[in-house]
Amino acid sequence: MNALLGFSRAIDGMNRVIGLIVMYSVFVLMGILLWSSISKTFFLPSLWTLETAQFAMVAYYMLGGPYALLSGGHVRMDLFYGEWSLRRKATIDVITVLFLIFYLVVLLYGALGSTAYSLGYWGKAPLEFFAGLITGTEEVGRLERSSTAWRPYIWPIKATMIFGLFLMLLQALSELIKDVARATGRMEPEART
């Protein structure tokens, strides 16, 4: 258990740092949108602003999601939950966080498949494709482009989403570990790592 708690602390630390960096990308978003209005008023509107802003937003909430999870930002319905003791909360969470983890795994699997497609893989086994890419038995094929006139490649944003979902999954595991520790009295119920 101590090893697990150590792991959890490491994850928390990492996601905290990432969150505190990613939170500033809201100004990147703001900058893009402001540039969009300036360029439109004074020059020709740019081709890339809307899509770039969309990419920035996706990166923002995907990479920032784990930090929100860590800091308890994702709301819960607390009709009953709010009344329970901290220990009881942790006990129930141990079970229900597994559902959250399941959801994240499905998302991550979908992201892997979609990213494999964006790298030109048409098959049904994205994991094997990525493994093959590493071992050199698979090759990158036709790269997916956005169906806009600007036509950026799509894989970078999809890869970012994989990374964000992976961090999110790690954070959910860390929450699970902490919930187990709290439920079994190995950690103070209200303690945060």
């Binding site: 439109k40 020709l44 509107p45 740019s46 081709l47 809307l50 956005s146 169906s147 806009t148 006139a149 036509r151």
Partner: peptide, 21 residues
Amino acid sequence: RVFTFPTAGRFLSQFGVVPVT
């Protein structure tokens, strides 16, 4: 700023049209 098809947009952008999808 005009909603159009990607390829049509690529073509039209030489006339200063800004294609949006």
